[in-house]
Design a binder for these strands. Structure first.
Length: 265
DNA sequence: ATGGTCGCTGGGCGA
């Protein structure tokens, strides 16, 4: 079985590229982030015609996450129990479409779009830390309830865990993604029982999954490693290889992120 | 070169 995660930055604009990726990669389950649409705008039919079922949640033009699978989609959850809400000024707190869980071929797959954080003094930063903490709390509980479960936490984590996960970490001084608190919140999934399997299989420094659209970042290889896959022990044992589909960033009409692909026995 | 890249939307926000 092959499982992948990809922040597509609009599933409607990227539809042809996503379908082409599924076909050429032979991916069975794809966790999608940043669909940037409501569910009634999602191109369900195109995926169904390609042989995939879709579970998607999206409330407006921002965020939006999905799991598309050709090995079944069961027990869909459009949030996790401790997922925080975010309150804009003078508005009621709202849940955002940043997490979707679905069981596909015996694997509990979560497509995750961790809040960006914006700036260290922004309310979105505290929200980001709470979001990661809430997810860790639930992930630990899922594993405690069933230590043999195959669980995959896939997505755009918006954290640069190591200095070698960016072209020049000094360019991020005082910014989000590299703070000690964010890195601790990311690493806390280890003690919770999970292994970050993309690093386990692709340990080379400067293995990037994202390049900004601006300033010719891809041509200059000014990238970030922010897309990851935490696996429970039972799933980790099945992972035989990981690939970053760097070529997907090339050419006109690319997402700023590329797919990360896990091979399972 | 008083912008600079995208996407959604149809002005400005979000990344």
């Amino acid at each position: 079985m092959r499982i992948a995660t990809w922040n597509v930055n609009s599933v409607r604009t990227r539809l042809d590229r996503v379908l082409a990726f599924l076909e050429r990669s032979g991916t069975d389950v794809l966790a999608v982030q940043e669909t940037k649409c409501r569910d009634d705008q999602f191109p369900h039919r195109a995926f169904e015609e390609a042989g995939y079922e879709v579970a998607h949640t999206g409330y407006h033009q921002w965020n939006g996450v999905a799991v598309v699978s050709r090995v079944g989609v069961e027990d869909v959850a459009t949030s996790f129990p401790h997922q925080p809400t975010f309150a804009k000024p003078d508005e009621e707190p709202r849940l955002e479409a940043r997490a979707l869980g679905a069981t596909c071929g015996g694997v509990r797959v979560w497509s995750l779009y961790v809040p960006h954080g914006r700036a260290l003094d922004d309310p979105h930063y505290a929200y980001k830390l709470a979001w990661l903490e809430g997810l860790r709390t639930d992930a630990e509980q899922w594993l405690a309830a069933d230590p043999g479960a195959q669980l995959a936490l896939l997505g755009d984590w918006n954290v640069i865990p190591r200095d070698t996960d960016v072209w020049d970490v000094t360019a991020f001084e005082g910014r989000t993604h590299v703070s000690a608190a964010e890195r601790a919140a990311f690493e806390a999934f280890g003690p919770a029982g999970y292994t970050e399997v993309t690093r386990e299989h692709l340990p080379a420094p400067h293995t990037y999954t994202y390049w900004d659209y601006q300033q010719l970042a891809f041509a200059r290889n000014k990238g970030l490693r922010i897309d990851f896959a935490y696996a429970s022990p039972a799933l980790r044992d099945r992972v035989t290889g990981v690939a970053v589909d760097r070529d997907e960033r090339r050419g006109k009409g690319a997402s700023d992120h590329v797919p990360v692909v896990l091979d399972l026995v």
